[in-house]
Design a protein around this nucleic acid. Structure first.
Lengths: 150, 150
DNA sequence: CTCAATTCGGACCGGGTTAGTACCGATTAG
DNA sequence: CTAATCGGTACTAACCCGGTCCGAATTGAG
């Protein structure tokens, strides 16, 4: 299973690309060309990012997008939730628990615990981190580490 | 956005229910009744769990399901990946990186790092934990689960 | 020993969400 | 004024989820 939606994935790619050249105003079509992603989709993602306050849009001729803040101040979690909404592990963790099980179901606290872990993971990585090549994570068994269970 | 699919969520509910009465052989319809989940879906989930080695199925009259191992030995990650397949944050983290970006894209190691964190969170919770009401879970493992993998 | 009842196992199908596209209006620089 | 660019909405296509159906295996009765 894939956790992030494709759009959210694109969002991070695009935001990261913006983080590489800060202060530069880039148009949607240019971003699409530079990231090799479909133009229309890039435009759509940028709209969402703008809406979420991750990027700032300049309209009109010679308009374009750039990051709303410094790259270090923007976490991956922010980018993702700008596109896909709040992050939650299960149904109960995101909206109000209207399910009848809520009261007597003992699993909820555990879900919330897992949820916090995921959120922390996404929040701890900023766009500035994403740009840096990350030698600092030495791992021999890359594929094994990537899979949760065989 | 919701991370777990509904089926995976059901899977955990069902597996947890099985963990509550170990050694008891329960049929799919009984499980559906006891968990208040739709019968057909429960059956489907159980098939996947059986395939993934989480539960053991007995066919024929007086057949049914039971956990393949003790509840402490089965992690939530196992249940989830039995249903939804390997867990990965993005496309690249699960299948072979066929995208052209793979080689030059610096974000991959960071994704893997996030991925490991999520995996650790899911693996750190067993079915036995899920059954226990969570007032008393050890803080040590909690912080460990929440910390991002180095 | 045979048959029927019961249960799991695998293939198939429809509905709904998501990805992706296209259009038109709004805004701004030159 | 014109060209370029973002913003919003509507639309189509694809995929995945959830559910249903029928066949395979096993048990227990006659």
């Amino acid at each position: 299973m894939i956790i992030l939606s494709k759009l959210a994935d694109y969002g991070v790619i695009i935001a990261t690309h913006l983080a590489e050249n800060p202060d530069r105003q880039v148009t949607a079509v240019a971003l699409a060309a530079e990231t090799r992603l479909p133009q229309a989709t890039v435009a759509k993602v940028l709209k969402a990012l703008s809406h979420g306050g991750v990027v700032i849009a300049a309209r009109g001729a010679s308009g374009g997008y750039k990051l709303a803040r410094r790259a270090q101040a923007i976490s991956v979690a922010e980018v993702v939730s700008a596109i896909d909404g709040a992050i939650g592990v299960t149904e109960c963790t995101v909206h109000t628990p209207s399910c009848e099980r809520t009261d007597f179901c003992p699993t909820r606290p555990h879900w919330q615990r897992i949820n916090r872990a995921v959120g922390a993971a996404l929040q701890s990585v900023t766009l500035a981190d994403m740009v840096m090549p990350a030698f600092s994570f030495p791992h021999a068994s890359e594929t094994a580490a990537e899979r949760i269970a065989p």
